[in-house]
Amino acid sequence: MNPALGILLFFVTIILMEGFAYVAHRWVMHGPGWFLHKSHHSPRTGNWELNDLYAVIFAVPSFVLLLGGVHLGWWQGYAWIGAGIAAYGAIYFGFHDVIVHKRLDTRYIPKSNYMKRIIQAHRLHHVVETKQGTVSFGFLWAPAPETLKAQLKARGNAGIREPVGRF
């Protein structure tokens, strides 16, 4: 396979994974898969939560495509697609688990408007602790925080977590 085509497949896969992640998050994790994802909308008491099983579930297609494209004689493009899925997973881990949820200690402070926007959007997603009423399901793209706040307000702030601490 032409390496340029492989690299194109790799980057197109990363882009398409954002759409897949949105759909999976909106209609699977906040739908029939809530039994796993609910742990992610609750305070974590240790290093792991039931929601972490989604990382394993979503790694399976990447692993199978890489294995098939590299070792099993399948079309080589499958390896590039599998690598794109894995790269999206790594980007997701870095953004979601390290930067937003601080599951690893880091001194990162967002400076760009883009990073501030997606971090704030993800935090607005997490103010809702119920299956319904949540906003912003993407990971690398999100509507403006003002839009998300208006959506939460229009829903009557249903399911919003009680404030923690004194004000």
Rank of each mutant, 00 (worst) to 15 (best):
W48Q: 13
W75S: 11
W34H: 00
V28M: 00
G77V: 01
V12F: 09
I118A: 01
T45D: 15
V23G: 14
A59M: 12
H37C: 04
F139R: 13
V164E: 15
R166W: 13
F95M: 13
K149C: 10
V135N: 07
L65T: 03
L104G: 06
I15A: 15
G19I: 00
V100P: 08
S62M: 02
N157L: 14
G82P: 06
K153G: 11
K149A: 09
G69D: 03
N47C: 14
F20W: 11
T106P: 00
F95T: 03
L72F: 13
P110T: 02
P143T: 01
Y54M: 07
R161E: 06
E162I: 13
H126W: 09
L67V: 10
A24H: 14
F58D: 02
L140I: 15
I119R: 10
I57P: 03
N2E: 08
V70N: 06
G159L: 07
G19L: 07
W48K: 15
S62T: 03
Y78P: 03
V12S: 01
K116R: 05
A142K: 05
L152W: 02
N51I: 07
S136Q: 08
A79E: 00
L50N: 08
T134H: 10
L65M: 05
A144C: 08
T13V: 02
S39P: 00
K111Q: 14
G6Y: 10
A83N: 07
E49A: 13
V127T: 09
A150V: 09
F137Q: 07
I91C: 09
G19Y: 01
I118H: 00
L16K: 07
N113Y: 08
I99L: 14
H25F: 12
F58Q: 07
R107W: 12
F167Y: 15
L53A: 13
I91L: 15
E162G: 13
